[in-house]
Amino acid sequence: MISILRSMWLTFLHVFHKTETVEYPEVKPYLPPRYRGRIILTRDAEKKERCVACYLCAAACPVDCISLQATEDEQGRRYPEFFRINFSRCIFCGFCEEACPTYAIQLIPDFEMAEYDRQNMVYEKKHLLISGEGKYTGYNFYKIAGVEIGVKGKGEGENEEKPVDIKELLP
């Protein structure tokens, strides 16, 4: 009985507390850089697309709202022919960012994406791709990978030996 009255009293005292509400359109809240908002595709330091179209983001997506098609340029560098995110389905869980092995796909602290027409929520590559590196700078997947696609020759990457001369006779 006392505890009931006490909790009523304590609740009543909240009349004198400061409200926590941020009046959003007039006051913009602070969102940390790792806030999971709009999804972007980034480029590496050489301004080349980071995305290698590995399909891991699409596979990680719990609502299956990412679809893409891989293709290759003349040098064998793989990139998405199209990359589509249906934001009307996206739940901003960030799994795609976690799955991405190249830091290409990133979620940024922008969430103001409301549209009157749902069709406008479908973002293609041209809407997603930015010209910078986003949150993570300095990473270039192809310098670490073993493939040769014009970024580095065989054996010139980080932590790689020169290619084996298979005609060498020394044991």
């Binding site: 009349v15 400061k18 409200t19 509400t21």
Partner: peptide, 8 residues
Amino acid sequence: LSVWQDRL
């Protein structure tokens, strides 16, 4: 309710 819950 919002007053008692520190809301608006």
